[in-house]
């Protein structure tokens, strides 16, 4: 019988989510920073705020969405729960709770990472230097993932870690794709133009998917192929489809290997998502609206998260889970 405390399972799950969230926020800012070089100015930075539905929170703190204001808001702002600093802080707080379970290396690394984040100043995120800061933030998140993979004991807790990471990653990949949508809202005429393609290229790169994409598509780049790759390719670890597979696997393993009774409804929900991912051709997704499709995926993952929370962490969730955030950002 499993004796993993619900509170620990919850903390492990959120530890993974917060680190994944920090990494992806760095990726989103990075890709946006690349776009904004294309003479679009402040307009571009406002789109990030729209992407995360942070208009009100931003307005309380800054009059204009300048590069400086947006970067500070998403990187350094202690009072903004969606900032990378806040995510790393939350990851560290969860790790602190988990000190009895996690390896010393995991703790020391996260603690050092947090101390470094906390020492970041405005200068470090000025537009011309932010790429460097984002690069080490990404690396620190990846170092965390690597240390965890290499040191974390493989019991139920590990499954919750992987599940949290995959749920967050699926959500974030949809947001990365959505940046492109929000940024450009391309007219039909622009689709396939050199500018349009260079931006899709940047999206792929920010998901670290460019080289993998080239392995299956040695030449050419179309919107459909990029979207298809990031949504449906089960071999690319950041694709929505791969993440759904991971959540499904880990939940199934928790039930079979550890005899846990929970997770049934979450698995049913994942089956529905799987069916759509398997049967919906990318052309139809694009024709019916990529943004709407991404929204739908986000809501499904949110529900899966709520159901996992209800069955294993003791969250109070209504019978038909509402599409509201359980913890952290929506």
């Amino acid at each position: 019988m499993s004796s993993l405390l619900s509170r620990y399972a919850e903390a492990i799950y959120w530890l993974a989510r917060y680190v994944e969230r920090a990494e992806n926020m760095a990726r989103v800012l990075d890709v946006n920073e690349t776009f904004s070089r294309d003479s679009q100015g402040g307009q571009n930075w406002a789109s990030i705020i729209a992407l995360y539905s942070d208009q009100d929170a931003f307005k309380e703190r800054h009059p204009e969405p300048t590069a400086e204001a947006v970067l500070s808001f998403y990187l350094l702002d202690d009072s903004h729960p969606g900032s990378i600093l806040s995510s790393v802080r939350a990851a560290r707080e969860n790790a602190r709770t988990l000190r009895p379970l996690i390896s010393t290396e995991m703790w020391v690394h996260l603690n050092t990472f947090f101390n470094r984040m906390r020492a970041l100043r405005g200068d470090d995120v000025a537009e011309e230097r932010v790429a460097r800061s984002l690069a080490w933030i990404k690396e620190s998140c990846q170092a965390h993932t690597g240390i965890t993979e290499g040191t974390f004991y493989r019991d139920e807790g590990w499954y919750f870690y992987e599940m949290g990471q995959a749920i967050e990653r699926a959500d974030q990949t949809t947001r990365l794709l959505d940046v492109k949508y929000h940024l450009l809202l391309p007219s039909v005429a622009d689709v396939g133009s050199p500018l349009d393609l260079s931006q899709w290229n940047a999206v792929l790169r920010s998901a670290a998917g460019y080289h993998a994409f080239r392995r299956i598509h040695p030449s050419g780049m179309t919107v459909a192929r990029v979207a298809d790759f990031l949504l449906f390719n089960r071999r690319f670890p950041r694709s929505v489809s791969a993440c759904v597979d991971t959540v499904n696997d880990r939940l199934t393993a928790l039930r079979s290997r550890y005899g846990l009774k929970g997770g049934g409804m979450a698995l049913e929900r994942l089956d529905e998502v799987r069916a759509v991912l398997d049967n919906e051709p990318v052309d139809r997704v694009l024709a019916q609206g990529l943004h709407e499709f991404l929204d739908w995926i986000q809501l499904q993952m949110l529900d899966v998260g709520s159901l996992v929370g209800r069955d294993f962490f003791g969250y109070q969730v209504p019978e038909t889970p509402a599409a509201t955030a359980v913890q952290g950002q929506s």
């Binding site: 499993s2 993993l4 405390l5 139920e156 929970g262």
Partner: peptide, 28 residues
């Protein structure tokens, strides 16, 4: 807790049933 290899619990992780037995809340 680490050195003993036992769970570190908080009060909210425990409950006492009607037969006065103590339990901890786990994922199972």
């Amino acid at each position: 807790a680490r050195e003993m290899g036992v769970p570190l619990v908080e009060g909210r992780d425990l409950e006492v049933d009607s037969r006065d037995r103590v339990f901890m809340r786990t994922i199972d």
